[in-house]
């Protein structure tokens, strides 16, 4: 698997798109810090950006890579290598190269502006790790969609739709249903619904950092327990790990059955 990962990874790292992605984050980081000149403010802005952007990039790259590397995949399939190894190795190649672009792209500007001398390093690590998690999750989901759809256009369409659903539509539906059922107790619903969407989940982890004062303003006992103690943080992280694993498992299972 290390070998497969190595080839996917080096292939991707040399591709133009990884560089574009890296350059984008470098630019974003430097521009933000140049305009704000304040690390913690930069981090807050980035948190809002990353929750939407990393899933989008992960989705697009995941689908694109899968369709573009069909030849590579077929070449490998005829070799004495396990299928799960081929797909998992390629998946890791995409996810890790994207995560690395993110980490390096944002890391350099923040280091240049004195990250280690500031007190925001924990927030910055939270930012990077939730970005990396979202990348892993959405690359896996995108590859799954590509595995289920041989038609490139269709697969691409579904993948973008999936991103749009998780990034915007889901929250819209959630808000709408909460307003319709405003007379009922909703704190259970609100929490469970947020947990079923990885983007919302990462957003909640960010809220726990930035908006805890507002979250504790609500009377529900569940909210109080969830946001007021470490329960919220522990539950969100474990759920995020769960979200990372099931698309990978789905991906490998589908890959076992797929015809090439």
């Amino acid at each position: 698997m290390i070998k497969i990962f190595k080839y996917s990874f080096s292939d991707l790292m040399r591709s133009r798109w990884s560089l574009v992605y890296l350059a984008f984050y470098l630019l974003l980081g430097f521009v933000l810090l140049f305009l704000n000149n304040d690390l913690s403010k930069g981090i807050i802005t980035l948190m809002n950006v990353i929750v939407i952007l990393t899933p989008m990039i992960g989705t697009i790259f995941g689908v694109m890579y899968f369709y573009n590397s069909r030849e590579f995949t077929e070449l490998l399939l005829a070799q004495p290598v396990k299928r799960s190894v081929i797909f998992f190795g390629q998946y890791l190649g995409v996810s890790i190269s994207l995560s690395l672009s993110l980490i390096i792209g944002l890391g350099i500007p923040f280091l240049a502006y004195g990250l280690f001398r500031s007190g925001v390093i924990v927030n910055f690590l939270l930012l990077l790790s939730s970005g990396a998690f979202l990348t892993f999750i959405f690359v896996a989901l995108a590859i799954c969609i590509a595995l289920f759809n041989t038609n490139k256009i269709k697969g691409f369409g579904y993948a973008i739709l999936m991103w749009l659903f998780f990034a915007v539509i889901y929250d819209g539906l959630m808000l709408l249903s909460m307003m319709v059922f405003a007379d009922y107790p909703l704190d259970n619903f609100a929490l469970v619904a947020s947990f079923l969407n990885p983007i919302d989940l990462s957003r909640i982890m960010i809220l726990l950092k930035l908006d805890i004062s507002a979250l504790l303003g609500y009377t529900g006992a569940l909210f109080q327990r969830f946001f007021g103690t470490n329960l919220g943080l522990i539950a969100s992280w474990s759920m995020l790990v769960f979200w990372t694993f099931w698309p990978i498992i789905l991906l490998i299972r589908k890959a076992q059955k797929k015809n090439f």
């Binding site: 292939d11 040399r14 591709s15 590397s69 069909r70 030849e71 590579f72 077929e74 070449l75 005829a78 070799q79 004495p80 290598v81 396990k82 299928r83």
Partner: peptide, 26 residues
């Protein structure tokens, strides 16, 4: 099983390779 493929060499119908690999790399 995948180990038996150690003992098979396969020439696919259409010669398709990752485009940005060099011949010696592949």
């Amino acid at each position: 099983s995948h180990r038996y493929r150690n003992k098979i060499s396969y020439l696919p119908q259409i010669a398709r390779f990752p485009d940005n690999l060099k011949v010696k790399e592949v």
